[in-house]
Computed example of a mutant assay.
Amino acid sequence: MNDGINWEPPQGSWASSAARRRNMQAIRSRDTKPERLVRSLLHAQGLRYRVAAKPLPGLRRTADIVFRSAKLAVFIDGCYWHGCPEHYVPPKTNSSYWSDKVARNVARDRDTDAQLEAAGWTVLRFWEHDPADDCALKIAAAVSRLRNRSQ
């Protein structure tokens, strides 16, 4: 058993300490509180959707909420991981690694948006700090508009 006293990061690991590694591993990539709030509001309106689903079979990326029939992909992005212009604060330790990581995430987000839109999908992105009520209203309106358009 490793008590963390003489902890060495695994070969090729980015973690600077055992505590940092545990902290980073605990961060959720799905079912975050903002996602659950928005989903709950959508469900209460009678809307049904897929959670953490791939909108396109060949695209190795998942949307937080997917309405297949409306071809709508919804992303609720974390302020830190996706570089929120309002709340992102560059890290003080290992800043070049983390700043590069966030920049890659933002570039991947833009690429995902472009690929989905090229395939005829509508993409909605919200920040984790956006009010859940506002997000749910915008999503429900988009679903209604897109479903009516396809009929």
Rank of each mutant, 00 (worst) to 15 (best):
F75T: 00
V89E: 14
G120M: 10
L37N: 12
E128A: 15
L124C: 10
W14M: 11
K92W: 00
R68M: 04
L72K: 00
D77F: 01
D77L: 04
R145D: 04
D64Q: 05
Y88V: 08
P90R: 14
A70Q: 00
K92A: 15
V38Y: 01
I27E: 09
R60Y: 10
V51W: 00
L47T: 03
T93Q: 15
T122I: 10
F75V: 03
T62C: 11
S16I: 14
R110N: 06
C135M: 12
V89W: 00
R61L: 08
V38M: 07
Y80Q: 04
V106L: 14
C79W: 02
K33C: 01
K71H: 02
L37M: 14
L59I: 11
A15C: 15
E35N: 06
S95M: 04
S99N: 15
L146R: 13
A119E: 12
R125G: 06
R50Y: 12
S40H: 14
H82F: 01
N105H: 01
D3K: 01
A114H: 02
T62H: 05
D3Q: 06
T62I: 12
D100T: 13
D31P: 05
I139A: 10
T112R: 02
R30K: 14
W81P: 05
S144F: 02
D109F: 10
T122R: 15
L41D: 02
A114C: 02
A118P: 02
K138D: 10
Y80I: 02
Y88K: 06
P9V: 09
S16L: 15
N148T: 14
Y88G: 07
L137M: 04
V74W: 03
G12L: 07
V74R: 00
A52M: 07
G46V: 10
S150N: 07
G4D: 08
H43D: 03
C84V: 04
L116G: 01
W127L: 10
